[in-house]
Structures are given as C-alpha cells and as structure tokens.
Nucleic acid binder design. Structure first.
Length: 476
RNA sequence: CGGGGAAUGGCGCAGAUGGCAGCGCGCACGGUUUGGGACCGUGAGGUCCCGGGUUCAAAUCCCGGUUCCCCGACCA
C-alpha cells in the first residue's frame, strides 16, 4: 500500500491521493468525468438514503424527468439561459441526422419540470407540488476536480410549486434546514446557513441560500443550495392555477440541490494523513475485525472466536467485516485506516485467553484511541461508541472551522483574515463590492449567515451602513 | 478559456548527447512469517498518451492534438 502525500504538504495532492488509495474513484476516459468505484459509491448511497428519508419525512416524493431538454425551453427564462449557456452540452444529431431543434443535456431541470408542472397544475387544490429527483446533470466545466466539480455529476434536485410566496419561502428554508441536519447528523459536517449575495444567485432565482463549510485547507465549499425562484419560471412556463376566488394566478416555485460534492467535503473535512475518516452512519464498513495469530495453532484458537464476534456484531445490525486476508496485522491496520473505517476490533491469542478484544477508534489514532475491552457486550459497546465517534468528528470539524473565522470591521482586517481563514464582516449586498473582493483578495462573499446578531455596522468595502455581516473567504 | 507544469507496467519514478525499456512498491506462485505498512525465491505484466514528421534507427528530436495537476476567469 502506497503512502499518501501529507495533508500539510500539499492539500490538493493529498485529496487526490486519498481518492485513489481509498478506492473511491478513478478518472474516466472522458475529460472532467470520473468513475465512482464501489467503495466510493456505497458511501454516496448511504448519504443518499439518509437524505431521501428526510425528503420523504417532509412530504416529498420522487419522480424522473428526461435527460434531454429542448434548447427553446432554456431560452424561455432569460437569466437562466444566460447563466447556463456557456456550460451546456448540446446534442445536434440523432440517429445519424441533424435535429430540427438541438437538445441540451440537462444542466439542471427547472425548465423541463416547469413544463410538466404547467400541464399538471390547474387548481389551488393541486398545490403544493413537492417533487424530488435523483439524477445526474452535465455542465461543461472549464476546470474539474473529482467529486468537487465534474462535468457530469450525480445529485438530487427538488422542485416545488406553491400558491403563495410565503409558502415557497418556507419551503426554501425548510429544505436548507433539511440539508443542515443531514450534514451535521449524518455526515458530521458543520457549516453556515446563509443567503448568497445578489452576485452569487442561481440564474433565474430571486434569492439563493446555501450552506458554506470550511474544508481542511480553510477554503469554503458551497455544500448545497436552496433557491427561491419567485414567479420567474412560473411565468416563463405558464405554471398557473385557479384560486378559490376563481382567478388565475402564477405559482411560486423553488428548487434545491445537493450533489456528490458533499462526499468531497467528507474527505476534505475529516481526512487525515492516514487517509479517510468516515462518519459511522455513512461508512460502508463500520467495524473491521482483524484477527492476529503467529501460527496454525494460534489461528485455530483465534479464528473461531473472531468468527463468533463477527456473527454477533452483524446480527446486532452493524456493518462489519472480518478481514481474513493473508496479510500482516500492521498492513491491515493501515489499510482500513486509509479507508476510514470508524472502529477496529483486534483479536489475538492474548485476547482469546483474556476473553477480551482491542478496540481502536479511527477518530483518535494511535494509543489514545485504543482500549482493551471484554468480548461480552461488545456489540452494545460499539453501538454506543459510533455516536461518540460521530460527535467527536463533528466537534473537531466545528472547532477547526470556528477557530479560523475572524470578526472583521475594516477592509485591512478582512484582507489579512482571508489569507488564512475566513472573515465575518459587515458587507453591503452589492455586486460592485463582490467584484472588489474577488479582484483584490481572490476571495468571495460566501454568504450572509442567517444566524447572526442584530446590529448596524459599516460595510468594509463601500462604507455604507449595513445590518448584515457576510462570511468572506477563498472557496472551491 | 488564459498562464505554468506533467504524461514511461496498477502506483511512484529513472531512462544527458537518438541505438535491446528499467527500478521500487503492488500483482501471481512456493516457502518462511504475522500484536502497527514482513522476508527470500520464481514469475506475469508495456501501443513509452495519441496522430503525423525527421532519421538506417525515436521513450528521447520536430509539428499537431488529447488528458491530468497547479494559478487565474467561470461554476454545485
């Protein structure tokens, strides 16, 4: 097993090394595309399943819409086409003949779903429509990186239609909170819920919200988005309903998405020089059992006990693996640490004699995370340990994030802060200010956090009076 | 898309001045090993990124292209 580049030496190389060595993904023979390998995909499946349950719990249902969208559909919403035109993949031929109208490979599905909604929605009784799609989309990205920005990426996109703006806005924030809970409770990822600046809005939205998370190199990753589309798409696609008062009204629509990029966040937030560190809920293997023996006599002593433990842990509902490969224990320890398995159980002749096992936690490597415990009640002990590991990962990530954010009140303070972390600074939401931050700091306003104290300050760029502060930092 | 770097076995790399394609790790088999990345032996594995060109001869030189990495612009 190859060693990986130390995280502190070259964060980007480290990230790519982990993806390769932990068997998450490969490069595809197509620019900007990746092949997700079974171990990586299983992590994604767990994330997807938890999130899907949260969607169902909040009243949403899944459906599927076409991969191809008529070019004219995108053109119906002016800002939308303007925003996406440069990154569209366009199909001009089919069955060996030129198409009458080019089809775009969906970069997102607002338009084709908007078309269907206009067919389906007739009455206020049809509302709200709460649909989610698990699919992949294509955007012709200039600069790609596995999971974080690929030309084709897997995600979910939710699309809802409502009778009132209040209801739509409630949905936008509800889903932002669903994402927030998913990140924290399933992935142990902290982040800041907030409103994107006007400059950073989704093409066609009247308001965009995001969660910004700090990666291990102190850059931000926009982990998800939730958009208030106002009536822009409703007007473009004639999504109308007849209200109680017998007048026709346009719907208010929302859309929200979270991609496999969040798996990139899991790597970049939790990983260390030994490799991945996976939150237990999304780990393909939660517990690995490593048997230890010197000879056949010891092996015949150890293996039956290891096998018994395996069966009891599995029966208790844990995702467990018994590593009976013909490798040395040291090799296996390193191998499973690379793959981020949260808990390791070691069992050797001494343990068999003592009716014990060695229990090692991935979140606290070395001796600190290792303890000798009884074989009795091992399953219960591990079931209790997993939430501890989750909490510890979240705590570590959140402490790192918070300790690298500085409250700033002047341009110079912001300038210094973004060299090695984020600034939280009063900012007037004006594209000109975003522009200056980008040009002079090669950073951007991440978002205006929803949770912030009331107050009045002076914008660090324009000097105007403002009532909001923004997170500012370098980002992916 | 602009600037810079790179591409040789699965991974990491060496192969001035053109002249038999190599090393370490990994992989297969046999043996000895096994409580933090074991060792010995034998062996398999190559379109030297692709396409042209120069040359008796190209991994090496020239032209064109592709992909990856880094810094920008653009974006989830």
């Amino acid at each position: 097993m190859a060693k990986i580049t130390p995280r502190s030496q070259d964060f980007s190389e480290w990230y790519l090394d982990i993806i390769r060595e932990a068997d998450l993904a490969d490069y595809a023979p197509v620019r900007g595309c990746i092949v997700v390998k079974p171990y990586g995909w299983t992590i994604y499946e767990h994330m997807r399943d938890y999130l899907d349950k949260r969607f169902k719990d909040t009243g949403h249902v899944n459906a599927a819409f076409p991969l191809f969208i008529p070019m004219s559909f995108l053109q119906k919403e002016a800002h939308h086409v303007e925003g996406f035109a440069p990154e569209l993949a366009v199909v001009t031929h089919g069955g060996g003949e030129a198409l009458e109208e080019p089809l775009v490979v969906r970069p997102t599905s607002e338009t084709i779903i908007g078309y269907s909604y206009s067919q389906w929605i007739k009455s206020y009784r049809d509302l709200p429509v709460l649909i989610n799609c698990w699919n992949s989309v294509v955007r012709w990205e200039k600069r790609t990186k596995p999971f974080l920005r690929t030309m084709e990426f897997y995600w979910q996109e939710g699309h809802t239609a409502h009778a009132t703006h209040e209801e739509a806005l409630e949905e936008v924030l509800r889903m932002l909170n669903v994402y927030y809970a998913h990140m924290r409770e399933d992935c142990a990822l902290p982040g800041f819920r907030g409103r994107k600046s006007i400059n950073e809005r989704f093409a066609g939205a009247i308001n965009t919200f995001s969660i910004e998370s700090m990666m291990g190199d102190k850059r931000s990753l926009q982990s998800c988005t939730s958009h208030d589309l106002g009536q822009n798409f409703a007007r473009a696609f004639e999504i109308k309903y007849l209200d109680r008062d017998n007048t026709e009204k346009y719907c208010w629509t929302t859309s929200w998405g979270l991609s496999w990029r969040l798996l990139g966040a899991v790597i970049m937030v939790h990983g260390d020089d030994q490799g991945l560190r996976l939150p237990p809920k999304i780990a393909p293997i939660q517990v690995v059992i490593v048997p230890i023996f010197k000879n056949d006599a010891e092996k015949s002593q150890v293996m039956p006990v290891a096998d018994q433990l395996y069966k009891s842990l599995k029966a208790s509902g844990l995702r467990v693996k018994l590593d009976d490969r013909d490798e040395t224990p040291g090799f296996k320890f390193n191998d499973w640490e690379m793959r981020g398995v949260p808990v390791r159980v070691e069992i050797g002749p001494k343990d068999v004699a003592n009716h014990s096992v060695a229990l090692a936690r991935r979140d606290a490597p070395g001796k600190a995370g290792k303890a000798f415990v009884s074989q009795d009640g091992l399953a219960e002990r591990i079931h209790a340990l997993l939430p501890e590991i989750h909490a510890s990962l979240l705590q570590q990530a959140e402490a790192f994030q918070n300790s690298n954010i500085r409250e700033c009140f002047t341009w110079d303070e912001v300038k210094e802060a973004v060299q090695d972390g984020w600034a939280l600074a009063p900012l007037e939401d004006n594209p000109r200010n975003d522009e200056r931050i980008r040009e002079e700091l090669t950073a951007k306003s991440l978002n205006f956090p929803l949770d912030q104290p009331e107050g009045e300050w002076v914008c660090v760029v324009s000097g105007r009076k403002v009532r909001e502060r923004a997170l500012i930092g370098k980002s992916y």
